[in-house]
């Protein structure tokens, strides 16, 4: 305990540009999470719509696809793509990556990380969205059909706004997981916060002050905890707003019970 709180061991944080160095790494994680999030939400919605398609074989194939990616350990997928991805794909990413991204995220191997993150998270999000859509009263869809709305109108105006709003807490919960999972890309050599932290603890430290690994990691951990707490506070707010508006409470979904907060105590 004294080791943890001894001021000498925290001196690195206020020395030179050490703290800035960590924040720069953390920013890479946040950006990676943001990019993966946007694509996962888009593809997740597409998969969810296919998963409830009126056509049997499409439903079945999409179900298989979702279950495949959802049930693999994410780090296995990341490592596989990092090793097996053809050179041409990486080059394609490098040329296609927009210039406003930081240099670290323009490297070819980032594509492997992004592909793995998006395949995994879009599958999980698809399942969450499907549950949200199917939790709606059947009458909603039937009424929309009876009113003469087309499939697109039905989805856009009636089903999705209600179904997806119910799933906001579960979705944000998954986004928190995604945010944490961005640290895994350090394994395939992308220069993010874990790697920046390890550099600080090396021999060529900045400012001549040794940074103990445990303290650096505690600081990095605290950054994630604060960010994720902000995210879950946002989720809680939206959930309460939704409950006040519609009077519905969220039911747990089979297989995703750890993500949907079950009905709270009365």
């Amino acid at each position: 305990m004294t080791y943890l709180f001894r001021p000498d061991n925290w001196e690195w944080l206020i020395t030179g540009r050490n703290a800035r160095f960590i924040f720069e790494g953390f920013l890479v994680n946040l950006q990676l999470a943001l990019i993966a999030m946007v694509f996962s939400l888009i593809f997740g919605l597409g998969l969810a719509l296919l998963r409830i398609s009126p056509w049997g074989p499409v439903r079945f194939a999409t179900g298989l696809w979702i279950d495949l990616w959802r049930n693999l350990p994410l780090i296995l997928v990341i490592l596989y793509f990092a090793i097996a991805m053809p050179e041409s794909w990486r080059d394609a990413y490098q040329t296609a990556a927009p210039g406003f991204l930081p240099d670290v995220l323009q490297r070819g191997r980032v594509f492997a990380a992004l592909l793995a993150l998006v395949l995994y998270n879009s599958a999980v999000l698809a399942e969450i969205m499907r549950a949200g859509i199917q939790s709606l009263d059947r009458g909603q869809g039937e009424a929309a059909t009876a009113l003469g709305l087309t499939y697109v109108q039905r989805m856009r105006l009636v089903i999705l706004p209600q179904g997806l709003r119910r799933m906001v807490p579960a979705t944000i919960s998954q986004l928190i997981t995604l945010n944490k999972d961005t640290t895994l890309v350090s394994i395939i050599g992308i220069q993010e916060v874990m790697r920046q932290g390890r550099i600080l603890t090396g021999n060529n430290f900045f400012g001549g002050v040794q940074a103990p690994l445990l303290h650096v990691l505690l600081f990095i951990g605290a950054l994630f905890i604060v960010t994720n707490l902000l995210l879950s506070r946002l989720s809680r707010r939206l959930e309460i707003a939704e409950q006040l508006r519609t009077g519905t409470t969220l039911e747990p979904i089979s297989g995703l019970e750890d993500q949907v907060r079950p009905v709270q105590a009365r």
Binding site: K180, D181, T183, P212, L214, G221, N228
Partner: peptide, 24 residues
Amino acid sequence: VESFRNIPLLVLLTMAYAGLRRAG
């Protein structure tokens, strides 16, 4: 709950092994 749920597992694992070992 809030600490252990919101920290990346990789950070926790590195802390528990390399972090503690370097701390003696």
